[in-house]
């Protein structure tokens, strides 16, 4: 396997709190990788470190063999990592098409070819019919797909998805799962999912990493991980506290 993303002993401290504690993992090119864990396990912090929103306090991240930790979010995107936001952030006053067009312009300076690319992406994410609507008028499932479309339009090698299934009904979740699976199959797109919805994780991911209190407690194939006593313990423990 060739490694696309290598995370090595990454840590992040907020004031006294160690949110991510020496996490290491590798994602193979062309695979789908999921990070799961109870609320407050440090998943989103880890995600934001990879996406460049925070610099880690320790450790390193390599993407395609080059160090990317400490780069700004826009530099990371230009290197080939696209991301979505857990709380969606469309450009509300712009049309659905323009939202995606802006992503497409990263690697296509000519407006006409950027627009053609945006149309292809919109069609794939099943938003083509709604392309003239302002993004602010979309429903939540549509916004979630717009978020993916916009990131995808930047032609990433790695797509980071921060809880794109959250708030979706089962039918919508299945729709998203099949879209992501097609993207992975047709373009060899590597995907890192941060996810709560286990149904989606089980259906998509080849490997799963489990975080608990900022540390990696288990890693492996999905069905093996969910039977891992440490994982069961952490989830039960979290629920007992709740």
């Amino acid at each position: 396997m060739t490694v696309l993303l290598a995370v090595e002993g990454v840590s992040k401290r907020f004031r006294g709190l160690l949110a991510v504690d020496g996490v290491s993992f590798q994602i193979a090119r062309g695979s789908i990788f999921a990070v799961i864990g109870p609320n407050g396990a440090g998943k989103t912090t880890l995600f934001n470190i990879i996406a460049g929103a925070f610099a880690p306090n320790g450790g390193s991240i390599a993407f395609g063999g080059e160090r990317i930790d400490g780069l700004t979010p826009d530099e990371i995107c230009r290197r080939g990592i696209g991301r979505t936001f857990q709380v969606v952030r469309p450009f509300p006053a712009l049309s659905v098409e323009d939202n995606v067009l802006i992503g497409a312009m990263l690697r296509r300076h000519d407006p006409a070819s950027a627009r053609r690319h945006a149309h292809e992406v919109l069609a794939r994410l099943e938003l083509f019919g709604k392309r003239h609507q302002p993004a602010s008028t979309l429903t939540l499932p549509d916004r979630k797909r717009l978020e993916v479309a916009r990131a995808l339009a930047t032609d990433p090698k790695l797509l980071l998805l921060d809880e794109v299934m959250a708030g979706l009904r089962p039918a919508e979740t299945d729709r998203m799962v099949s879209i992501l699976r097609e993207l992975n199959r047709d373009f060899g797109l590597t995907i890192l999912l941060i996810e709560h919805v286990m149904r989606a994780v089980m259906a998509l991911a080849a490997r799963v990493l489990v975080l608990h209190h900022g540390a990696a407690i288990s890693e492996g194939a999905p069905d093996a991980v969910v039977r891992d006593p440490a994982v069961v313990q952490s989830y039960l423990g979290a629920e007992a506290v709740d």
Partner: peptide
């Protein structure tokens, strides 16, 4: 407004964090 710079400006106006995530040097 019809070129890349205009779209990038509008992206920044609408949501700067999202704009950066799309590779725009805001």
């Amino acid at each position: 407004l019809k070129s890349r710079i205009g779209y990038y400006w509008q992206a920044i106006r609408e949501d700067e964090v999202a704009a950066r995530s799309l590779g725009i040097d805001t």
